[in-house]
Design a protein around this nucleic acid. Sequence first.
DNA 1: ATCGCTGGATCGTTGAACAATCCAGCGAAA
DNA 2: TTTCGCTGGATTGTTCAACGATCCAGCGAT
Lengths: 210, 210
Amino acid sequence: MKVPSVAERVAEELRYQLAEGFLVPGAKLTEATIAEDLGVSRNTVREAFAELAGERLLLRQPNKGVFVATLEAGDIHDVYTVRRAIEVSSIRAGGSPERIAAVRAAVEEGKRAAEANDNEGLGSANQHFHGAIVALAESNRLNTIMAQILAEMRLYFHKATLNAHFYSDWLKENEQICSALEAGELERAGDLLLAYLNRSEQQQTAIHGE
Amino acid sequence: MKVPSVAERVAEELRYQLAEGFLVPGAKLTEATIAEDLGVSRNTVREAFAELAGERLLLRQPNKGVFVATLEAGDIHDVYTVRRAIEVSSIRAGGSPERIAAVRAAVEEGKRAAEANDNEGLGSANQHFHGAIVALAESNRLNTIMAQILAEMRLYFHKATLNAHFYSDWLKENEQICSALEAGELERAGDLLLAYLNRSEQQQTAIHGE
DNA sequence: ATCGCTGGATCGTTGAACAATCCAGCGAAA
DNA sequence: TTTCGCTGGATTGTTCAACGATCCAGCGAT
């Protein structure tokens, strides 16, 4: 049994609370409070803060405190710029049959969630889908970058911002992208994915200011 | 005047020593030693370690210590996979005249360094060149990702591993890429850049084991 | 209404402490 | 001789208490 360090567990707990919407963007995290709540020392909390700040989930303002990251002007475009770069590049390079199967699995996961009217599940299925696309490239670094980006998106574009209308759109689209990938039509898969990302960026921009 | 926090300065100092080759891959960094050397407390060193570990420059092995990151099997390919994704994607999207001018400036910087037989300068000129390409995309996130990748490369592929033969190769090539970019031939610029990255990966793989 | 001060809260950093863990070396047993 | 197991020392993980520095809200004086 491996026991993750305490600092690691604190970071994990905070990540969880961020993803779950327990901690909303802009909220202030006071070291002493968190330390007491989680029953750890202030120094340990500090280490966890350093880690999450490096992942852009928290923002450190010297001598003022750490805050849950907020969406600044241009951040939406910024995030999607990264996604276009790594997702499109990954899918264009194709991948092993196992990795492609993982993409397919995410598509099916989405369908099942749709049938079950499981909005929660739909969201994570979509994240699995895009994560699986990046995983095609077999690059640890790209995977962690993508994981961080997805964590940011969970934080910013929380459940509340997503509606069923959104989902029906990309359920079909994911299917098409996956089919193209399976058929080896990598260019087409890339184009479809790129189009999706562009449209998704527009939608998110429309919803969230600027 | 803003005074960076002590932890930040420690991290900066370590980054410097890593880039300069003062600390070689695999070396062990003992908390107490670093703390004493830099005249700071152990806790502060710890925070700096956390930051650098997040940048993949240091590796933390629980209960054993932190070590300067070493090149594992597949890491070269991994790094170049990231570079292909973000550099090619950035250049294909073009950029503002100012950003393009920055790319040109890096090319000229390289030429001057070559004339002056300044190997040191040649290396950083090349890094500036590729950094400027990513900067075309105007994405903070891509910029920091690229900065981290370049820091990793400085660490792994240190001066010793580079020879003059290398340089003459890409000096011309950078010129071509930049010209294509300036001429608006983005597809061609992307193809040239991609070819360069592929070749560079091969060379590095040939030099370093695996 | 503005300015400047002050007190309290929080951060940044330190130093010391102690348990948990690892590791090299050494001695005992096969 | 080789292997096994133990022990002691070194280092890490974590906590705690302290103190100066910095920020901020409130309040009083102009």
